[in-house]
């Protein structure tokens, strides 16, 4: 019994020291990592919906989307930004999708993936200045019904040797845009009228004040 207990305790002591040291390092790097992710997310959102200047996050049930407005007053909606999650080859791929008001894709940007280096990672060639990010650019202007890889009868050319990655991105984008369409579609038609009523009310109050 003692033969097992003593080495076990020693090993545990090493484990605790290692755990504490890592806790320390983690507490130093965690805010930095979170800040990096947030900055990357914001940059991606602005990238995929360049016409918008003000963004507002909204949630409908467990579905989260961002509405982009053309100006500070939030009078005109420029489009939407949603995040699509797709199960790729060796990671869950996160794609930020900019959507126009007619629910075609404005632009997409893949913000997180850890697919096979050199294969699936070909989807993200934005970092490489010599290459056009052709895979991402293919999505521009497509309605959700056309977003599918060519092997499945869609309009997208998939990445050589990385069909799973291509398909995962395409499917997740199509599904998420569809979902946005059903969630926002109805309220979009009502929203402008509501705002018109609101603004007329405002004006009326001002006018009344003026009359008095």
């Amino acid at each position: 019994m003692k033969d097992i207990l003593k080495p076990g305790l020693i090993l545990m002591a090493y484990g605790i020291i290692a755990g504490l040291a890592l806790g320390l390092v983690n507490s130093m790097t965690a805010p930095k990592i979170a800040a990096q992710e947030e900055a990357a997310r914001m940059a991606a959102i602005e990238e995929v919906l360049p016409t918008a200047t003000v963004f507002e996050t909204k949630t409908e049930g467990d579905f989260e989307y961002i509405v982009g407005y053309t100006e500070e007053s939030k009078a005109e909606i420029a489009g939407f930004v949603v995040t699509a999650l797709g199960n790729g080859f060796s990671s869950t791929i996160r794609t930020v999708v900019g959507v126009n008001t007619d629910f075609t894709v404005a632009a997409i940007e893949i913000v997180y993936q850890s697919e096979t280096p050199g294969l699936g990672t070909k989807a993200v060639e934005l970092d490489d200045p010599t290459k056009e990010p052709w895979f991402e650019r293919q999505f521009d202007g497509l309605p959700p019904s056309d977003i599918n890889v060519d092997k499945d009868g869609g309009k997208l050319r998939s990445i050589t040797g990385a069909t799973i990655t291509s398909r995962a991105i395409a499917r997740s984008v199509a599904i998420t845009v569809e979902k946005l369409k059903t969630t926002v579609g109805s309220s979009l038609e009502q929203e402008p009228t509501e705002e018109v009523i609101d603004s007329t009310n405002d004006i009326e109050i001002v006018e009344e004040g003026g009359v008095e």
Binding site: V25, N26, T29, K32, I33, Q36, E37, D127
Partner: peptide, 9 residues
């Protein structure tokens, strides 16, 4: 952790 914090790409 350090790589995730300083060289995310």
């Amino acid at each position: 952790l350090v790589m995730a914090a300083y060289t995310p790409a």
